[in-house]
């Protein structure tokens, strides 16, 4: 068969005409970008500068370029840094495990219920984050039915045995903090997953079945790899805010679950040690950037295999 004839079959893709204005786009961009530069980029510089100053709140600060503050910060607060990353990573994995079936169901199986389910997933956003986190104090309260049930099934003993709780209740524990993080950022996981699973053509899964792939194999070879963009976006949107969060650790945890965000908050606003707080902020940001860059690169290459 002639190759030329085969090419005739494809319509040329519609080229998007993009207007070329000389000054219009810059005029449109200027106010928004200026705002971001002044109130996002410049503060990063002042934050860095603050971390290299010495002094105190009453006598003022002087720039000394003292980088040893970073070593000091890491030495004093490495458990909090490690803990924050660990909690955030655990919550991200849990959110993925919980969010994937719901996102898949909404995108592929829900039919005309799709929009209603989508609204119900977004709905929790509309009640304050804090109020919903406090609601978990109601749900997991020591005298409540959930704890009673967990005690009677031995679940609390199990959690205690693996060190996720310190007594046979659920609140004020690692367990509660991780559950809170998972719950609070679950919609951030579900929405990108939904967006990429909705684009998945169900006929591809049928084709995999037709070509001798069992449902499990079809998921592994077709559904999962095609949903990877959503997985990557969802895990980032969950992990990053979770790593810096301190609302959950403060409201659902104990003194052993203090996360780095809580340390930064109290160093800035209560201890008033600005250089140390600024250094910790910078360390957190750097850790996240490094982890995210590593993760995106790894996820990117796996997708190609």
């Amino acid at each position: 068969m002639a190759e030329g004839a085969a090419v005739v079959g494809t319509g040329a893709p519609v080229r998007k005409p993009v207007r070329r204005g000389r000054w219009v786009p810059y005029a449109l961009l200027a106010p928004g970008l200026l705002w971001l530069v002044v109130f996002f980029v410049v503060p990063m510089i002042t934050l860095g500068s603050q971390s290299l100053q010495e002094g105190n709140i009453d006598d003022g600060y002087v720039f000394t370029g003292n980088v040893s503050i970073y070593a000091d910060a890491v030495q004093r607060y490495w458990p909090h840094l490690v803990r924050s990353i660990g909690y955030a990573a655990t919550a991200t994995v849990l959110a993925l495990v919980l969010g994937y079936p719901l996102a898949y169901f909404m995108a592929q199986k829900a039919g005309r219920w799709k929009n209603i389910l989508l609204i119900l997933v977004i709905a929790p956003f509309f009640t304050s984050f804090l109020i919903r986190t406090l609601a978990w104090r109601n749900i997991l309260s020591d005298d409540g039915p959930v704890v009673a049930f967990a005690q009677s099934t031995g679940f609390t003993s199990l959690l205690q045995a693996v060190g996720l709780t310190s007594n046979d209740t659920l609140l004020a524990s690692k367990f509660a903090v991780i559950c809170g993080l998972t719950y609070n950022f679950l919609p951030f996981m579900i929405l990108p997953l939904y967006a990429s699973l909705e684009r998945l053509d169900p006929r591809l899964v049928e084709a995999a079945g037709d070509l001798y792939a069992s449902p499990r194999e079809a998921f592994r070879r077709v559904t999962w790899p095609l949903s990877l963009p959503g997985v990557v976006a969802g895990t980032l949107l969950t992990f990053i805010p979770a790593a810096g969060d301190f609302i959950n650790s403060r409201l659902l945890g104990n003194t052993e679950t203090v996360m780095i965000g809580q340390v930064i908050d109290s160093q800035f606003l209560r201890v008033l040690d600005y250089p140390l707080a600024a250094a910790l902020s910078f360390i957190l940001l750097t850790m996240i950037v490094v982890l995210v860059a590593f993760y995106v690169r790894k996820a990117g290459t796996e997708e190609l295999v």
Binding site: D201, R203, L204, E206, A207, A208, G209, D210, L211, Y212, A213, S214, P215, E217, A218, R221, V222, P225, L226, E303
Partner: peptide, 20 residues
């Protein structure tokens, strides 16, 4: 018999080629 256990194959209307 399930689809993946049948020795029957289909050429789909949309081709359904795996894009990845």
């Amino acid at each position: 018999t399930k689809a993946h256990q049948r020795n029957v194959n289909t050429v789909f209307q949309s081709y359904a080629l795996f894009p990845h």
